[in-house]
Write a protein that binds this DNA or RNA. Structure first.
Lengths: 238, 238
DNA sequence: GCATATTTGTCCGTATGTATA
DNA sequence: CTATACATACGGACAAATATG
């Protein structure tokens, strides 16, 4: 290349997959769209935890410059999906058992507090109901990964009851990390399916206006879930 | 400068303030140190809320390239200290009343939950005691801004009792935003001083092992603080 | 409403320092 | 210890959007 003189072809030099999108619906920044792509790939397990993401390989593959790619990396690093080591690059996050425990500590702290701080019933439970319905649909079509997504959504909706954007964002991050954890579970169905019922139970309890009991149910829910996951971790290391 | 030919002097081409630091103790990345500098300036009110941070002005002043500066901007944007408007640049965050309310909603949710989830006494209260002591020193030397910093530190230490890195980070961000809010208070002393006593009271209650009562004290503390701040906001808009 | 100037968005090429084989 | 590979940071260029007259 280098038609004119020094390397200054055009910003549209990214003629691969992204270029078309960019011209058509350049609504978000390029970096954000790159981050979206990488986020999906990580969530689907295409990048193994601990593997390094080479700037050159990824950037070349997607047809974006290193600068733009680094901005995408920065976004995902703040979401804790990647870790950045100085002068070494970025790696797909490896969630340790300590992380797992902390994740559930935050969940217990925040989710239970949300239920406790609820005012008087009735509560706006449409979001929770929709999440449970999505879970049922996923179970019917035996889409177990989607079932996991629906379960996560249930807890996001639950936190949303607090009406706090910052709390929402916090839990968005926490639950995104949780997705990384779920990948260690060998039996996706056996892990996710029981919790659909328990989510429904919590929803029914809230409908009845008993936020206090819902909190108790949630606490034991989280305890059991953490127990299963840490057991799976122990097995994996053995 | 420009000894050789094309603009490629050396990464140390930034011969201003940053260069020396970089050579001496380049422990963190340049972008992070730039972010540190800007964070301090914002906290000290050198940049008025709502004002635009020109890439050229700041970058030129600090002697860093635009790319590096933009990375620093990205960091601070994620901390909610700056807001980014597409094709318009970055601006110092203007905290609205809604933000203020949400900030205190999160504080109430998290800080109170931390106290509630404490196990059996005694608790490791050294950090809290140190924060109160720092507040006393600041009061003695009439350094009212430092007093505010010490009060903020008290609440960070309080959250640290939960032993959760993620919760710590959350509150770090929330309290950094709070610093922006504090700048609207005209009477720094009158606002911060009373809370030093109340922090001390909470500490004493925790020393006595009564986490439950400490939670009640904290709740009213937060209620009063929010009341004062929103009143100041209302006055400012009038 | 239009033309111009300024600023941001994106990308390239390259030199240097650091970590690792 | 040397060599290689890579991230870091720089400057420069042009397109697009915004601000200004």
């Amino acid at each position: 290349m280098g038609s004119t003189e020094s390397g200054t072809e055009s910003p549209g030099g990214a003629e691969a997959t992204l270029a078309s999108d960019r011209v058509l619906l350049a609504r978000t920044s390029t970096a954000e769209r790159v981050a979206d792509i990488l986020r999906t790939r990580i969530a689907e397990g295409l990048f193994a935890p601990g593997s390094r993401l080479s700037e050159e390989a990824i950037g070349g593959g997607l047809g974006v410059s290193r600068n733009t790619l680094r901005e995408a990396f920065r976004l995902l690093t703040h979401e804790r999906l990647l870790v950045h080591e100085l002068n070494r690059g970025v790696f797909v996050r490896v969630v340790t058992v300590e992380d797992l425990v902390d994740l559930y500590r935050v969940r217990r702290l925040v989710e239970c507090a949300v239920l406790r701080e609820l005012g008087a019933p009735p509560y706006p439970l449409d979001g929770l109901a929709a999440a449970v319905a999505a879970g049922r649909r996923a179970r019917r079509s035996e889409a177990w990964r989607e079932l996991g997504t629906a379960n996560i959504r249930f807890h996001r909706e639950l936190v949303a009851l607090a009406g706090s954007p910052r709390t929402d964002e916090l839990m968005r991050g926490v639950l995104a990390e949780l997705r990384l954890v779920f990948q260690v579970m060998p039996d996706t169905r056996g892990f996710h399916e029981p919790y659909l019922v328990r989510n429904d139970e919590i929803l029914a309890t809230l409908r009845a206006g008993d936020a206090r009991r819902a909190e108790t149910l949630l606490a034991s829910y989280l305890r059991d879930s953490l127990g299963e996951l840490s057991e799976a971790y122990a097995r994996q290391l053995a």
